[in-house]
């Protein structure tokens, strides 16, 4: 039974394991980016040679290796990183020391900016993108799925499912660029790529600028959700309790929504949570296609520049969102399905 204390204990347990998991993830990610190259035979100076100008001599490269800590054993490097996460750390700017408060995700090897403020600065973009798209795809995907299921085999159903197949199969950079060239550059209805206005600055512009990315991203997901919802509805609408609901004389709308959809949506909650968590860690393709300055674009830049602390930061943030999403999904599942809660 869902006593508050047990819920609390469960939460604490889950949170502790989430933190442990996050540290394991940081260690693994750290190992991938810092240990693997070393195992592959690259020396500390080889690693550092990525972070100097092109005419740098061996001495300068070595200095850089020392500055970036590549010359220390890997566990010392990880320890330093982990300490930054827990206690913060200080970074030399030349003119002095900069304090990077906990949780410090480190400083970029290239721009020497602290990573976390960059991420936090970009998070609203990714969140706006994810939230708007999620709203649209839930609305579009679920309603399409419901209509498709109820009109199974009809023209509407076939048209919707064909569109959904296209939506699932077509990559964002295709649909995105195509819709940009039609709606932004051709018809001039939507904002060109790279447009973003913060919500607090002008909510209308915010929505206008994000409309096309929302629709494009939502199209991809709506397609999947439409198929999921359709399958779920086809299953639940054949359940005995739907017949019961009808036998009670409920309106068909209530039967479909309150009884059919309610049950069909339960598995979708899980998938939605994870999808959203994944997206918050950076909608890489959408952000790159539409040149939105979000986490995903940051990740792409970081990878292109071999900027390991940034890559590490993005990975950890993404992992954090997924861990949180998992937790939320589990809790939400208990809310949605009483059999889970009270079992």
């Amino acid at each position: 039974m869902g006593l508050p204390t047990t819920v609390f204990a469960y939460l604490v347990k889950r949170l502790i394991s989430a933190v442990v998991l996050l540290f394991i993830i940081t260690a693994v990610v750290f190992a991938i980016f810092f240990l693997l190259p070393r195992l592959g035979g690259a020396s500390a100076d080889d690693l550092a040679s990525r972070y100097v100008g092109k005419s740098a001599g061996a001495a300068q490269i070595h200095e850089t290796a020392v500055r970036l800590g590549f010359t220390d054993p890997i566990w010392v490097q990880y320890g330093r990183f982990a300490k930054g996460l827990v206690a913060g750390s200080d970074y030399y700017t030349g003119a002095g020391y900069d304090h990077c408060p906990a949780p410090c995700l480190g400083y970029s090897f290239i721009t020497q900016n602290p990573v976390l403020p960059d991420l936090l600065d970009r998070l609203p973009v990714t969140m706006s993108l994810a939230a708007g798209a999620a709203f649209l795809w839930l609305l579009g995907g679920i309603s399409t799925g419901v209509v498709s299921a109820l009109k199974r085999g009809s023209f509407i159903d076939r048209a919707a499912m064909t569109t959904a197949l296209a939506g699932v199969s077509l990559p964002i950079f295709f649909t995105g660029l195509l819709s940009l060239s039609i709606f932004s550059y051709g018809l001039g209805w939507t904002a060109p790529g790279g447009s973003y206005t913060p919500f607090q600055e002008n909510p209308l512009m915010w929505a206008y600028d994000l409309l096309l990315p929302w629709i494009t991203l939502a199209f991809l997901y709506a397609a999947a959700y439409a198929r999921l919802t359709r399958a779920g509805m086809l299953e639940t609408m054949n359940e005995d309790y739907i017949r019961t609901a009808r036998a009670k004389g409920l309106r068909e709308h209530d039967v479909v929504v309150r009884h059919g959809l309610r049950a069909a949506l339960t598995p979708i909650v899980t998938i939605f949570g994870l999808d959203l968590g994944l997206l918050l860690g950076g909608a890489i393709l959408t952000e790159t296609t539409f040149s939105l300055p979000g986490i995903g674009q940051y990740a792409v830049q970081a990878v292109a520049n071999n900027d390991l602390p940034k890559v590490l930061g993005v990975t950890i943030l993404g992992a954090l969102f997924i861990v949180i999403a998992n937790l939320v999904v589990d809790l939400l599942y208990a809310v949605v399905d009483p059999r889970v809660r009270t079992a």
């Binding site: 950079f173 660029l177 296609t289 040149s291």
Partner: peptide, 12 residues
């Protein structure tokens, strides 16, 4: 403006 999709940049 930095970080513009290369293909989109051409279109813009």
């Amino acid at each position: 403006q930095i970080g513009i999709n290369a293909a989109d940049l051409d279109n813009r």
